[in-house]
Design a protein around this nucleic acid. Sequence first.
RNA 1: GCGCCGGUAGCUCAGUGGAUAGAGCAGUAGCCUUCUAAGCUAUUGGUCGCAGGUCCGAUUCCUGCCCGGCGCACCA
Length: 589
Amino acid sequence: MKKQIQKIIKDALLEAKKTHNWPDFDEPEIIIDYPKSEQFGDYSCNIAMALAKKVGKSPMEIASQIAELLNGYITEGAPSSGPMGHLLPEGEGEMNNVFEKVEVAAPGYLNFYLSKKYLQDLVLKINTEKDSFGNGEEKKEKVMVEFSQPNTHKEFHIGHLRNVFVGDSLVKVIRKAGSQVIGANYIGDTGSHIAKCLWGIAKFHSQEKLDEISNKAEFLGKVYTQAVQAIAENPEFENEFKNIQNEFENGDPKLAALWQKTKQWSLDDFQKIYDQLSVSFDVYFWESEEELEGKKMLKELLKVSCIKESQGAIVADLEEYGLGVLVLVRKDGSALYGLKDISLAVKKFREFEIDRSVIVVDLRQSLYFKQLFKVLECMGFHKNMQHVGYEFVSLKGSEMMSSRKGNIIPATYLIQETIKRVKEKFPDTDAAEQIAIGALKFYMLKYSSQSKIEYDIEESVKLDGATGPYVQYAHARICSILGKIQNTRYKIQNADLALLVNEKELSLIKELNNFQQLVELVAETYEVNKLAHYAIKLADKFHSFYGACKVIDEQNPELSGARLSLINAVKIVLAETLTLIGVEAPEKM
RNA sequence: GCGCCGGUAGCUCAGUGGAUAGAGCAGUAGCCUUCUAAGCUAUUGGUCGCAGGUCCGAUUCCUGCCCGGCGCACCA
């Protein structure tokens, strides 16, 4: 829609140059905005103000001249696109008269008003297309979104949850926008943290019957912390640990068996969490595999100009780009994250033939990703790779989490606690778990990614205001009304939508009209919090409509039919928006 | 030291080169014999960190500074 408005404005500018003897100039970019308030129409453009100097007239005068032409187009047709009534592509049905009028407002805005007919037809369109409403055109592009990336032998904590929610949402929204998407997980199943944990088990827990431990994942996390602290406090343990690390890396069968066994404990725990959150992956990568792949690539890598030996280690020297130095291989020969990520990046593009790689990782690794992408570039590997960062999550009233310090908040604790509190508050609901998971996801996703979250459990289970349950509640209310008219004379199909003329009704439809644009925007900018904000706004407008308009009215079955049709459209879009952020929409609450 | 991110209402956060800077919570005043009150309606509340600059116009862009957080060679 915005693009089409741009096009007709461009037509108008060209025509104005002739008819109003405007001087010749290069057109600046035509920007179409949503006005701040509905009193300024549905779309607005500030081109007249930008042109004031170039044309040599006042913004208001320019705006009036453009508006006059545009209003002419509404009835008579624009030079390149025909009547503005035919703005929409073929196959969109009988979408005539998209705009009602174009107005000029001080200090020089052009305000576009959608016609009632267009809005009323939109309700039918949504009811017809159902959950495919808002889908982008199918693209050939293949995108991989890598997210979650938990480390085995460490506990899955609340910071990991933010990652999972953002990543899962990106998969869904980029897919909806029309690209093929592969959701990928990259498990950290190797590295020094594993060796530390194995050493910790050998040192402090060798007498215990490991198989009888009830919460195995938690046990591993605790042992890891215990090991880190023990080594820090007792330097003499350093050698003991190094010995075990060497034995492990050289394939000691006992340690390898212990590794496999304990790794599976972590993986089982992760899977339980993903199941509970309804998150899944299309493909898994393993750090232990990339370690081997990376080492195989070393010979080739050393031919790359920026990669060299330094102080016994192999590093990428990126000083000339202002990116410092990235160590790929330690002086003891073991591989670091960077090396593994190089081989993984190559694998993603070669084996999976993707066009774009999106990686969701903590914002604190921004520099690291700049370095990684630069190294790949130096290798002649010019690909579309994006790091989507997000700020950290802490718990209100506690210091910053660190699994090395052992003061983390486990994800399972937060999930169980939220479910418990929802059940306390609403003992009658059957959807406590859906509500709790929804509250959790919504709370994390409503923040912009560069905003730190100080997680407040008390705040997160409040079910009013800008929360998931608030949106779910709007959905449940709609379902409740729709449930009442089953097997009655009211009809959603073939309703006379021209009856929808009330201010609240039109305002609600206008919000629905923004959905497709939103999907496109989020798929490009990765700003998933905009989905949450949209859901709130739509729910707000529904509640406002609900307060003002009675849907089922015995006296007026025709209007009721139209309104039922409208709320069904709202239900579809609301549910779809929630789906995009991974939140379920229960029918009853 | 260099770099990145933030500083907007009492609190938590949106937002933007332009039209009176917006929500939620908290506060105040109303609304359940009426489709789910997890709701609605109205309302109080702001030197958009500070100082310059660019611009017809800056909270938004540029520069400097202050405050908070984070990152900068063998963790991931």
